[in-house]
Amino acid sequence: MYQPHYRLGFLRYLLLIWMCSCALLASAHPDLNSRQHHLEQLQQTTGQADWIFAKAMLYADSDHPGLALEVLKTLTDKTVTDPKSNFRMARLYLRLKQPDLARKYLLNHFKKFPNAQPDITISTHILLAEIAVRQQHPQTAVNHLNQALMLNPELPAHLYVLTIRAMSMANYAATEVFETLKTGLIHHPGYLPLLELNIQQAMTYSDPCIIDQAIEQLLKQYPRHPNWQNNSGRSTR
């Protein structure tokens, strides 16, 4: 007899906290009233971690990073039981300019969820690479990006560009950079930044034939490209 009442009381308490936070949010931003409905839906249809995360997102979107951080901190290793929430939390920490906390949860991913779907593992590698670049650790960035691209070579083209830039920062040999460029261009033959990096890289070989080939490769995709269509940058055979 006692326990159900206790539970009801606790639920009421939770509801009160939630309503207060919504009222507070609503006063900060008119649209938060309408989002209250979404939070209700979330609370009904998702787990506790999802709901807390949604609340933190709401604060972050409404320009309240401090409140977002406080809410986020109520999510502990115990409540984060699925890889998606773990990743979302890391994303939000990164957005809230807490790269060390973000990295902690991202590294946690490999430990806690070794059998997670490859998609989340790939996303985790990409975020770790982003943090590494910001913290001037290009070699770490290259390692993470290479692992992501190995898991899925058809990832968006800009990730190849990021890898090549990080490789240059980490002083990789030209031949290794060329290999990554080649793979990138197999999957994204018409991606201009890769085609232009290819020309730049060809120039380091100072072999006119290689340079011409790289320019031809770009012009094949973009015959009207104003910077290259007159072959102005072209070497003389």
Partner: peptide, 19 residues
């Protein structure tokens, strides 16, 4: 169309992503 130009969907540049 992440490869709009190279597959004839557009006259622009390939974005290399569906985003």
């Amino acid at each position: 169309p992440h490869q709009a130009n190279s597959t004839g969907h557009g006259i622009g540049a390939d974005s290399g992503t569906e985003a």
